[in-house]
Amino acid sequence: MVKAPVGGAQRPLRTPFPYSLVLLAALAVPMQAQAAGTRAGSTISNTATASFDNGGGPQTIDSNKVDLRVDELLDVTVDSSDPGDVVTTPGATEQRLTFSVTNNGNGEEAFVLGTVANGGGDDYDPAVTQIYIDNGDGVFDAGTDTLYTPGANEPLLDPDESVIVFVLATTPGTVSDGHRGIVSLTAAAKTGTGAPGTSFAGLGEGGGDAVVGSTGADGQDAGAFKVSSATVALVKVATVADPFGGSEPVPGATITYAITATVNGSGSVNGLAITDTVPADTSYVAGSIRLGGTALSDAADGDAGDYDGTRVHVALGAVAGGETRTVTFQTKIN
């Protein structure tokens, strides 16, 4: 590095200097979103100095000082925080989408929140029930997060501050597997919104004006639910084997029942159980319950099946779409 050479190599610019060139260059610079930046209400002061010697020894003079007040810029962005569609099921309540709201302006500002669930581009409209403002831990908890009430508790954010917002919705009972429902969260500067450059006189932080920034002081982003449901189809087949090697339903013949549960859809069913009453005039064949290829005991014990004297019961638990479970048992015709 070099020390400034007084009387050095720099050749000063003489008027007229090439403004048009400079301005053209400026136009080529892409407009970019500004981080919060200089705090609203502050003052930018510029003063230059000149040093010289016009015969009386070195002198230094100051220029006049130019003061510029910084007005409040109103800017906000909303971002969906969910990594993808949030899985829901028909009729489910308190289904949750997560968003973040960021004050990109340079002053403290409150933001009015809202939701749009009928914006189209999806298969159904989730019914938004509540908006909650996170308490800072990023985890939804209706007990500690704040229920948003328009006009009462708009989140007040410092420049560059973000808050997490949870949107709760009910999924209509009529939706089908694979359907998507989009909900957008909107956040608007309470001071005002509008086209960039719109000015609200005297309403800025520090007593200056508030000026709408490049976001229009109005942000929104979409989150989506995706319905994942499943249906169960049961098929029961009876096969008779008589004592003579045939298939006649005569006394002493053994009937093998095969009940096949087929689960369809992208979701899964929970607590699926098969119960079948042993028909009259037949006797259950002890120890005949099988789930797939596995024998189950008749006792109500650690395995999934039991026979209580009147009916066969097999608990299948959670079964995902695309899977089947086959339960078999046998009875003997009296």
Binding site: V6, A48, A50, S51, N54
Partner: peptide
């Protein structure tokens, strides 16, 4: 009289 060793300095405002 001519001003010799003329140097203009402008500290940039922080903002």
């Amino acid at each position: 009289r001519p001003a010799e060793r003329f140097v203009v300095t402008n500290p940039l405002p922080d903002a």
